[in-house]
Amino acid sequence: MAKGLGAVVVDIPRCKGCSLCVAACPTKTLALSRNINQKGFNYAEMAEDTCTGCGICSTMCPDAVLTVYRAKKPKAE
């Protein structure tokens, strides 16, 4: 899988740091930050550029704080 195929944007203030996305991520892209958000949670973030945009993280996220991106498929000519 090519690097940088996908991306996850975390709505940091809403993240509760439950780590369900981190545990579920098949490419170990996500990790809990060493930083904390306003609520004091170590929020989730992309630690590696290995995201495939599979969306398993957002499937597991109880707080709907993850927006998942995937590379656009090249249009058939």
Partner: peptide, 27 residues
């Protein structure tokens, strides 16, 4: 700090549903 990733050339495949309000749940 997490890594910086470009969103260029990427499309949204999942986002927060509209039928949820902006409220942060108490859960």
């Amino acid at each position: 700090m997490g890594i910086e990733v470009s969103l260029e050339g990427k499309e949204i495949v999942y986002k927060r549903p509209k039928a949820l309000t902006d409220a942060v749940t108490h859960y």
